[in-house]
Write a protein that binds this DNA or RNA. Structure first.
Lengths: 164, 164
DNA sequence: GACGTAATCTACAATGATTGTTAACTACTA
DNA sequence: TAGTAGTTAACAATCATTGTAGATTACGTC
């Protein structure tokens, strides 16, 4: 079996949690998502899981992913797409989200450390986690932009984006 | 009437939208939130609005705030606190969110422009909006170490009780 | 200043994502 | 192999938010 899935299962075992067939299956699905650089929704993973195990419930998928997130093996990120996304890569990174097609791309995180230092020294805040999300349009969607704009009512889009 | 509220109303008028008593009221409430550096939930603003206009519906508040956001006068930000927050300041800035008490603090945004340049040149993405959220613990909550919510000013629900 | 129309209003229902509950089941240890 | 803690699936409930429809209202036009 593959490497990442084994690590996830080992994390369960390390915490004394039981290695159920559902957890094993989800660990392999998380690994596949990782390999494909995907950020599937919980619902999407549930559908994939049901291909192998038709009776697995959505609730179990939610629970298991929440457990993996608590173990620090994945991240559950809210990217404004309506539902939480499973991010199989727990290392810090930024996300670009295309407003048109919903595509999500990881990107290295280049936050200025001064910001966090200032938060800690000036305000006493301890930063434990960062979410950096860029929203915009990917190349494919921008090339179709003119065609789509015709379909949109005037003023619908022009007013709600923040230009710089 | 105060300055910011007038600007918000002017923005409605500029778009040919009608100046209803509900919109006027909400504009003044947004101004107050701005003056207090608050990030109230829609629900919280609805409660405040009902103090002046008991029959105003939550739906109207949602709609009006969505309109103000489309006009670029406010931002509706999802900070992972369970519901959308009204950010009366549309200029780019980062948010610090305390995991314990839910307090939200604005902070200047120090993103490295190289990241966005790389996104645009390497991948063809055009960044239109950024969300930068720091999660952690504020000084008050860290000193308590109980993990429970602390009292917030004004006794409303704009900042607390949004645990997951 | 009144009118007509488009826009908005409220009340209510519906949605969609997520979480809680409970009884049945299962993996693991002894 | 049995006991038991922990997990599962079905179902209900919750929460924030959005959709619908008929009643009401603001505002440009006359």
């Amino acid at each position: 079996m593959a490497v990442l899935a084994e690590e996830l299962i080992a994390a369960f075992r390390r915490k004394g949690m039981k290695i159920t067939p559902q957890r094993q299956l989800l660990c392999t699905l998380v690994e596949k998502a990782h390999d494909q650089h995907e950020h599937p929704t919980v619902e999407a993973l549930h559908l994939r899981a049901m291909e192998e195990m038709p009776t697995i419930s959505l609730k179990t998928v939610y629970s298991t992913l929440a457990e993996l997130a608590e173990l620090g093996m994945i991240r559950l990120v809210a990217l404004g797409t309506g539902s939480v996304r499973v991010d199989p890569n727990p290392a810090p990174h930024a996300h670009f989200v295309c407003r048109s097609c919903g595509r999500i791309i990881d990107h290295p995180l280049d936050l200025d450390d001064d910001t966090e230092s200032a938060l800690e020294s000036d305000l006493g805040f301890v930063v434990e986690e960062r979410d950096v999300i860029y929203r915009g349009r990917c190349a494919a969607c921008r090339s179709q932009e003119t065609g789509e704009a015709v379909l949109l009512k005037e003023g619908d889009v022009s007013g709600n984006s923040q230009h710089r």
